[in-house]
Design a protein around this nucleic acid. Structure first.
Lengths: 346, 346
DNA sequence: CTGAAAGCGCTTACAG
DNA sequence: CTGAAAGCGCTTACAG
């Protein structure tokens, strides 16, 4: 019997089951070559004793920590909640746990912070979210200490470094197509900041869709923006005070679209009656304004799930199987068009 | 010298510094009774070798995991981002790490999920956020396996169980006082759902403030709500179609206040010119609407920091110091009034 | 199909 | 002020 008040160890299970601890270990790790009856017997005892192997012992002996690290920067990022939801659930399913670390993208001791975490915890893999996944210093630190990484929505894919993303170009095309199909011809576009690759991708999608319909983007209707509420408001003020107003505005993220809504309201232009507005991201706010925003939902939780899987599955640090197929390294997940009340046929 | 390509261990440090591993251990753990010159020598070697003790080894030998668990339920909760920001930063400062687990409040295997995590990781403490911190099953499971907990904003404080919260009554008083000081007399209030204690507390604060000014709450101006956007919209429609409209609405959370904004817009009532609106929570959305919401900011990140501290500091599982002072167990942190453009003097 | 031995890298008593 | 020994609870080769 296990001493009362003490948590059972593998030794207790082995004694109780009448086998060696090695056999218990084999059963617990799903290793092949254990007689079915032996396995059943062990599992029965495990159940009875409510035994769970201790992570620190497994980690010390086996060299795997069963920990996945999540590095993120902006606490207000719409991302965080969904990333975590997806990542923790998938981790649990796979017998892993998620350790979260918030870093400052421009902290002087960024490298030290990462080293410290990696050396202490030895996570079996690390998920990087923007903007950290585009920080060369972070990537270099992780590569040096040999921690496998998956980048979530990086600016651009790196050869040999796994990543998960959605297709911004395609999604922007779909939003634009929606507006076109509603009969809009004068569609304005508010761009993101030039230093983010999503900005160019979304604009590209917008242009693609127009051209596919035989239209050319009208320079008068293209405004710069910064992915912020304020920049959206300013851009909208410009656009809506033109002699010939657009009948629809596609703001390339939700925060800017909210700014457009505010500007329209300020100018007494009812949305969607006199103006259709579309955003991009499906931020929590998008559904909490009037009218609720038509937008694109990034599959954030799914991306996180996928990242965990790639980390747990691709455990071949020595690349014994030869260089992994580059295409398999970069996954693109399907987004979702969310049509709400801010868009209407003209 | 440390073998190349291998991460240094305590043995390498000891050899290089010409001391025993026990002495290295003492230095690293800030134990007293080490000669200053010895300490310096050890630290120099630690630095040179970039040595960091391995958590799994420390944990296995020492019985402390240096892990703090964070249990949460709702991924969309405004909480998550700030909780994590506060908790991870404080953890890092104290040499701990944060493991996050998302649970379903009504999952059938809730208890198992918790047991599994605790048995595997042996976190030194656990932070519970609403609604998990009010779930008796969760609390029982944690108590049984002896994991110290801190409850964040629980419905009610439990004897002997540490908690951190803000003062809802006081904050609601302040919002009401603000509206009163702006000259509003007909102030409507939208309540939260009766099963959440914050609802009653915020209403209490509202009533307190009115009475302090010699006013009585007008039943005509009190509406039920459910802390959701929709319930706020409905309540506002009721309130704003009265023969004698209120000049201000205090919605007891931001989501409902956003609903009020939507309703006012629908009815062509400009905010704040014809109607002042105040919320509660300072959700991310509060600043992303027009006009931006006057509200109360919960000190969420600070609460999380404090929770980590309580867990790390109060490491006396056997209560050797006698029953801790009940008052010290329940911390109340200062909130912040956020005055924006949705409120104006009438 | 199963087991005895060694060892992962630390900390905890215990000495001196 | 410092150290030698034992042990935490597992997994990894290695045998048979």
């Amino acid at each position: 019997m296990t001493p009362r008040g003490t948590t059972p160890t593998i030794v207790d299970v082995a004694r109780e089951a009448g086998v060696s601890i090695k056999t218990v270990s084999r059963v617990l790790n799903h290793e092949p070559g254990v007689h079915e009856s032996t396995r059943d017997q062990v599992l029965k005892v495990v159940e009875a004793l409510r035994y769970r192997p201790k992570q620190s012992a497994r980690s010390l002996a086996g060299g795997r920590s069963f920990l996945i690290g999540l590095l993120y920067y902006d606490p207000s990022a719409i991302f965080v909640g969904s990333v975590q939801q997806g990542a923790t659930v998938r981790c649990r399913e796979l017998g892993y746990h998620l350790v979260v670390e918030s870093l400052h993208n421009d902290a002087p001791d960024l490298r030290q912070q990462i080293d410290r975490m990696v050396m202490a915890l030895r996570p079996d893999g690390m998920i990087l979210t923007p903007p950290l996944c585009d920080n060369p210093e972070v990537l270099a630190a992780l590569r040096e200490n040999g921690t496998p990484c998956v980048l979530m929505s990086p600016e651009r894919d790196l050869r040999g470094v796994p990543s998960v993303r959605m297709d911004d170009v395609h999604a922007a095309e779909e939003i634009t197509n929606l507006l076109l199909s509603l009969g809009h011809q004068r569609i304005a576009f508010i761009k993101g900041p030039p230093d983010q690759s999503a900005s160019a991708a979304r604009y590209q999608g917008f242009v693609n869709a127009l051209r596919a319909h035989g239209l050319e983007p009208d320079p008068e209707l293209i405004q710069p923006g910064a992915f912020t509420f304020e920049s959206g408001r300013e851009a909208a003020h410009q656009l809506l005070s033109r002699r010939q107003r657009p009948t629809a505005v596609f703001a390339s993220n939700d925060d800017m679209a909210l700014g457009v809504l505010a500007a329209a309201q300020r100018l007494g232009l009812p949305v969607p009656n006199d103006l259709s507005v579309a955003g991009f991201d499906d931020s929590p706010t998008a559904a909490l304004v009037w009218p609720p925003l038509t937008t694109v939902r990034q599959p954030v939780a799914e991306m996180a799930r996928t990242a965990v899987e790639m980390l747990v599955t691709g455990q071949r640090p020595d690349a014994s199987a030869g260089p992994a197929d580059e295409a398999d390294l970069h996954k693109v997940l399907r987004h979702e068009l969310v049509v709400r009340d801010s868009t209407r046929a003209r």
